[in-house]
Simulated scan of single mutants.
Amino acid sequence: MKYLPGLHQWTLANMKMALSFAKEEIQKHKENQDLHDPQDFIDYYLLQMEKSKGDPNSTFSEDNLAQCIIELFIAGTETTSSSLQWALLLMVAHPDIQERVYKEMEDVLGSSHSVSYQDRKKMPYTNAVIHEAQRVKYILPVGIPRRCAKELHILGYHIPKKTIVVTDLNSVLCDPKQWETPNEFNPNHFLDKEGKFITREEFLPFGAGARVCMGEQMARMELFLFFTHLMRTFRFQLPEGVKELNQDPVVGLSMHPHPYKLCAIPRSSL
């Protein structure tokens, strides 16, 4: 593909730049490495490389380490930031829901208590809003590809061993048989009649099974803490003269929103 013209060349150039950055970081770690006091992922990986010297079956290498660093950035940072971008866009598009989130936080936390991840249990509506934003604006075009470890027969289909399987999680997250309004932003999907938060088996933005996203808990914490602190500190609205925002996704490695502007008004000034 690197010899063919097209938009993919932009992606390949960005990947080359990212790998170059990762390799520079690896070199810095090697120059300042203390084998007796590893400080981060790169240090521990380099330590394991040192221990694996002479092992012909070892997969530890600097090229592999650089690729791991890129994957951590993409899977652990870009996905969460895209989800937050969608959440803010949806709050601007639904000011009534935004105000209800703020009111719940004020009622539960008061004016002095800082937000912690444990507070989500006391704020069912806010928790439902975050879950619904992840559902209706799922940030991946498809699920992460997997390879069958053994021959499998499922629902009348034969899947040979080593077959690569790509799941369409959107088909579950927007299944009209499971969700009352599958294509609309509706936090009530995660609330019962009494307003209590309910866990939905069909909520699969992190995948499922043994290969579920290993960063799920970190992502959940980040989304909740960033979102609640932003909602508690600012009221978000469209800039003057702007009537609506484009809610169609930009298709890429992740499905992020089109660039947009919004106004963040400090709550203390309202």
Rank of each mutant, 00 (worst) to 15 (best):
T80G: 00
M105E: 11
A87P: 03
S82E: 00
I154F: 12
R100P: 09
T126Y: 03
V108Q: 11
A128R: 00
Y157S: 03
L140P: 00
I198G: 09
L169D: 00
S171N: 07
P176G: 12
D96W: 06
W179H: 09
F190L: 07
E78N: 03
R100T: 12
L152F: 10
T181V: 09
V115K: 05
V172I: 10
K162V: 07
Y157V: 08
A87H: 03
W179R: 05
H131R: 07
I159D: 08
Q178H: 10
I130T: 02
D96E: 15
S112Y: 14
S82A: 13
I159F: 11
R146L: 08
I144D: 02
I164M: 11
D168K: 07
K150H: 11
H153L: 10
P145T: 02
T181Q: 12
S114M: 13
V92C: 06
V108R: 08
I69V: 13
S116G: 15
C148M: 15
W179M: 05
V92T: 05
K196T: 09
E99I: 14
V92S: 02
L155S: 09
L88H: 09
S114D: 14
K193S: 14
Y117K: 13
I74H: 00
V172M: 04
L90V: 05
D175G: 06
G76N: 03
Y102P: 07
Q118F: 13
P205F: 00
G156I: 05
E194V: 12
V166G: 06
C68T: 11
G110T: 08
A93M: 13
K177G: 11
K161I: 08
P205N: 03
D192H: 13
P182R: 04
P205A: 02
H189A: 11
T77W: 01
E78G: 01
D63I: 10
P187D: 07
